[in-house]
Simulated assay, not measured.
Amino acid sequence: MDKDKFNQLPGVQQNAYLKRQWTKSRIEEAISYLKENNLPVTAMAIVHETGLSKATVYRYRELIGNENLRNYTKFQNTFAPQIKPLDTTSTAQISS
């Protein structure tokens, strides 16, 4: 951001901007550290290194890369009740 534009922002917006930049730099530093030490670059590893919350780290997914974020859809069927399809080949009839 241009310094002149930055100085025109109200105080609250300046603070929010600075905080976002600080968070971004912390995540980038953690990614660099993990890569230098041949560790997997995952959201949880970044959370552990930075002390930021998982929600905060996930907001910066463009830095981490989607391939390193947990894909919750692959666990979707694990907790869903298992429903068996109806057997339409059976010739048995229900008597009433």
Rank of each mutant, 00 (worst) to 15 (best):
T89L: 15
S90K: 05
V41S: 01
E36F: 11
Y60V: 02
Q8R: 04
F75A: 05
M44G: 04
K84Q: 15
P40W: 00
T91D: 12
N38Y: 07
V47E: 13
L63N: 02
L63Q: 08
E29M: 14
F6I: 02
W22N: 09
V12A: 04
M44Y: 03
A30W: 02
A80F: 02
N7D: 00
E62T: 09
L34Y: 09
P81C: 02
Q93D: 09
R70A: 08
T50E: 11
E36D: 14
R59L: 07
S95M: 08
S25L: 15
T73G: 05
A30Y: 03
P85C: 12
T23A: 00
T89N: 13
S53Y: 05
Y17M: 05
Y17P: 07
Y60S: 02
K24F: 03
V47I: 14
L34C: 12
F75Q: 04
N71E: 13
F79R: 11
V41I: 04
A45F: 01
A16P: 03
K74T: 06
G11L: 07
S90V: 10
I94C: 11
N37I: 04
G11T: 01
T91L: 14
L86M: 13
N7P: 01
N37T: 11
K19G: 02
P85T: 07
Q93Y: 05
E28W: 00
E36V: 10
P81M: 09
I64A: 05
E36L: 15
K19I: 07
I31P: 06
L39K: 13
Q76M: 10
S25T: 09
Q13T: 15
L86P: 05
F6E: 00
E29Y: 06
Q93W: 07
K19L: 06
F75E: 05
T89Y: 15
A80E: 12
A80G: 07
Q82T: 10
N15V: 13
D87Y: 08
V41G: 05
L52K: 09
